[in-house]
Design a binder for these strands. Structure first.
Lengths: 205, 205
DNA sequence: GTCCTCATGTAAACCGTTACATGATTTC
DNA sequence: GAAATCATGTAACGGTTTACATGAGGAC
């Protein structure tokens, strides 16, 4: 019954109670990297969760004209969240605009494509270094059972993902920039950092 | 004006003309891994693309009661596609249900989590070996300018992505399965195949 | 005769974004 | 005094999924 957005809200409230406003800031970039939502989606969803008895709220006088509502998980909500976590995820189609562009890249001007992938590369490098910073200010391998484990594990995934993306951008730039000065640079970078086809081959079959 | 779905259709038609039905099979799993759509979305979009003069069609008598329509790109459509390819992609939020579950994983039973990540791991391994097979039946590094380049580059991305995902699943299973017999197995697997934090560190800052 | 593939469409429901709407408090 | 932050909501729109609707031809 509860939507994935609903579980995202429950997952955040499981850490500590928050207002709808705080939820919406937590679920917008650059904080909410793996599930985002606007306040216009969060407020109605909170109302639904209250109706389903998965969250409750207490009203405290806020700065604005309306009362501030501090939402927290109910026992029912926590139980539902716990159950949902270990259920296999819905298979939702991957829609990746960069990969789609790549599929049609054979039609486009190589110089412009290089510019596009350089921009992407920079963006992913910026994200990676931000993740690395976050990791640095975090205890190494927190115990399962503490919320820090969730933070640590999602960060690990994020760092791994950015490395994958960076390797791919570098490879693309290398492929597109044949017989040019950037060839040597990119060859070095992409060959070492990421599993190339050839390096992976001996492991299986 | 044209939506991303529109460009996805243009990108497929740029290879060779197809009917709406053929488009819908091409854009459903397991073929269309990076942009999927149902026929109920494709047929109206094709009508819009025809109205925008980006595709044209010729009717041939089909098996059913209605004529089969073979769509192909117009010069205008090809030009629009070429332009779109090198434009920076819209930043669309990442919504990853597995990462969201991971964020809340500290609440769940480790044994059940291991089961979940093992299933995920298997699915990604299956995909990877299917990709590897496809790569094997493909010329090494096709020239930019031929459609084979698009196939090769998207496959490279897919293989890199699956490797990232596999490494992450293995790491998670290793983290969850402390003081158990599976610890040794997973330590070996994840440490070698994928960049751990520590291995990446000396490169930057 | 039933099921599967080929073939094209429409309608309702759902999810998410953008825009509309209001207003107090704090900071510059 | 203007702008940013805190705070909560609704409405319109666009994209996606699911369901409805039809029907020929071939395989079993």
């Amino acid at each position: 019954m509860t939507s994935t957005l609903g579980y995202a809200i429950l997952a955040i409230l499981a850490r500590h109670p928050r207002s709808g406003y705080e939820l919406s800031t937590a679920m917008s970039r650059p904080l909410g990297y793996f599930w985002t939502a606007r306040h216009s989606q969060i407020h109605p969803e909170l109302q639904r969760l209250v109706a389903a008895r998965q969250v409750s709220f207490e009203q405290v006088p806020g700065p604005g004209p309306q009362d501030k509502k501090i939402y927290s998980l109910t026992d029912e909500g926590l139980a539902a969240l716990r159950q949902w976590v270990v259920e296999p995820p819905q298979i939702r189609p991957e829609r990746d605009e960069m990969v789609l562009k790549t599929y049609a890249a054979w039609l486009a001007d190589p110089a412009e494509l290089i510019r596009l992938f350089r921009d992407q590369l920079e963006a992913h490098e910026r994200r990676l270094s931000s993740y690395e910073e976050q990791r640095a200010s975090m205890p190494e391998a927190p115990a399962h059972g503490s919320p820090a484990f969730g933070n640590y594990a999602t960060l690990w995934c994020g760092i791994s993902y950015e490395n994958h993306r960076i390797a791919w951008c570098r490879w693309m730039i290398g492929q597109l920039g044949t017989d040019r000065d950037l060839l040597e640079k990119n060859d070095q970078l992409s060959a070492s950092l990421y599993p190339s086809w050839d390096a992976v081959k001996p492991s299986e079959s």
